[in-house]
């Protein structure tokens, strides 16, 4: 039974690992921390897995655990080191898909998002993942109205970062 659960979990996580990678990319600044956070999220997901009943999609369930781990449980302080190398590798913009202005804009946007606080990042992350405000407010434990207000503030904040 346990082996079966293990197998099911690992397979599902392997298929959905991109979600965890995205969270790690947002919240860490170098490869080591990325792997470290990935591991902690995996441990938390596995510990909580017996309570996952399959009434929601595995991926939906993952968002909550992954974000909770990143903004609450994960202990290590983010190192403020030169992250240019790491970021340029991670956020490689596919040049053929965008014209030059868009490419530049995207690069600036990613940089701006990385400068946001933990909670703001969580909102942006869920927004980028196309979650609606009900889901966002459910995940973070704030009201829907407040989630909208907060998101508007973040948009303003991003605008200030981009056009100082």
């Amino acid at each position: 039974m346990n082996k079966e659960l293990e197998h099911k979990f690992v397979t599902e996580l392997q298929d959905n690992q991109n979600i965890v990678h995205k969270v790690c990319t947002l919240y860490t600044n170098d490869r080591d921390s990325h792997n470290d956070l990935f591991q902690e999220i995996t441990i938390q997901l596995w510990k909580a897995y017996p309570k996952f009943r399959g009434d929601a999609k595995f991926s939906t369930w993952m968002y909550r655990v992954a974000l909770n781990t990143a903004i609450t449980l994960y202990r290590k302080n983010k190192k403020r080191i030169d992250t240019a190398d790491y970021e340029s590798v991670i956020f490689k913009i596919k040049a053929d898909e965008y014209d030059e202005t868009e490419e530049l804009q995207l690069k600036l946007m990613y940089k701006a998002v990385k400068q946001l606080g933990d909670v703001d990042k969580a909102l942006v992350f869920l927004y980028l993942e196309d979650k609606n405000y009900t889901e966002i407010s459910d995940t973070l434990g704030i009201s829907e109205v407040n989630a909208r207000v907060k998101m508007n503030r973040i948009k303003n904040k991003l605008r200030t970062i981009l056009n100082p």
Binding site: V10, Q14, H21, Q39, T42, L73
Partner: peptide, 24 residues
Amino acid sequence: KEFNVPKLSYEDIHKMIWKKSSSI
């Protein structure tokens, strides 16, 4: 986006689930 990070294999993930948590 396909993030430019190495995809983890089944074995990689399987190893991780038995590691010790360092959560607060």
